[in-house]
């Protein structure tokens, strides 16, 4: 049955549809303008340098000191730590298998002097809720230099809320369990604690994920240090470890404070 449409009604409908389309057409340019070009960059390989641009040497690092640097993005802060026992002896950090997500009730493996036994791996697997990743061994002449991201995996509190407490340092809130070398990475925001000498595995909830580690390289001939990769969970607050503005081939290191935003 043919439907008779009056010319006036047809004109109104076409007009209304056209005006609606016009208004909708304005939206895409505005949205495209507001959304920044999404950056998923390459993982940089960056040499660690001091603020005067001279290279950082592994042997001149002091134990129990925060050496802070931004990597792999210009706003993701990390710390280089030289780990020692309470008596000051260096601890060689071996390669480790670390679960990406674990039950807070989990009891960490006893110590890391040897490869994990079969039973220990079984126990870890029972407690872990996800996969494992390989935590790189410590670098430097004594194999005791490690680097961790300092944005808490729990709710994203960065340094100075999350920081390293050397053996014997008192902690104001929620005294956590102590790491294997007597020191601990502890976050003031909600009391999460990680063990810096065991791949930053979880010591105290509410966090359930370990801190991401920066994979370091040490050149034994020149004694220079390089940050080459991130391992572990994605840096908290970031969609991916290279989503954003990545650092250049040299990153500035500052002692016990956030480094200046400068390029060398």
């Amino acid at each position: 049955m043919p439907v008779k449409v009056r010319r006036r009604d047809f004109l109104k409908m076409v007009g209304a549809g056209g005006v609606a389309a016009t208004l909708l057409g304005i939206a895409p340019p505005i949205i495209r303008y507001i959304v920044p070009p999404v950056l998923r960059g390459e993982m940089p390989r960056s040499q660690l340098v001091w603020e005067d641009c001279s290279p950082v040497k592994a042997s001149e690092l002091e134990p129990n000191t925060h050496y802070l640097f931004y990597y792999p993005l210009v706003d993701t802060i990390n710390v280089v730590l030289k780990l020692v026992t309470p008596s000051g002896k260096p601890i060689r950090i071996p390669e480790m298998r670390v679960p990406t997500q674990m039950d807070p009730a989990y009891e960490p493996p006893a110590w890391l002097d040897a490869e994990l036994s079969e039973e220990e791996i079984k126990r870890l697997e029972n407690f872990s809720k996800g996969s494992f990743y390989t935590y790189p061994p410590g670098v430097g002449p004594d194999g005791n230099i490690v680097a961790y991201n300092l944005i808490c995996q729990h709710l994203g509190c960065p340094y100075p809320a999350l920081r390293y407490y050397p053996p014997g340092t008192p902690i104001a809130t929620n005294p956590p369990e102590i790491g294997a070398n007597g020191g601990v990475l502890h976050c003031l925001c909600h009391g999460s604690a990680y063990d810096p000498s065991r791949g930053a595995i979880v010591l105290t909830p509410p966090t359930v994920r370990p801190q991401p580690a920066v994979k370091l390289e040490w050149d034994p001939n020149t004694d220079y240090l390089y940050a080459v990769d991130m391992v572990g969970p994605t840096i908290n607050g970031k969609v991916c470890n290279t989503c954003g503005k990545t650092v250049g081939d040299k990153v500035v290191v500052a002692v016990n404070r956030e480094p200046e935003k400068k390029t060398c």
């Binding site: 920044p36 999404v38 210009v74 989503c243 954003g244 935003k261």
Partner: peptide, 22 residues
């Protein structure tokens, strides 16, 4: 990101705070 997922979360975060910290 934890509420909206990586893809949508990336868009929301990039609109709200931008990806370049500067």
């Amino acid at each position: 990101i934890r509420s909206l997922g990586e893809e949508i979360g990336l868009y929301v975060v990039s609109v709200l705070f931008g990806l370049d910290p500067a």
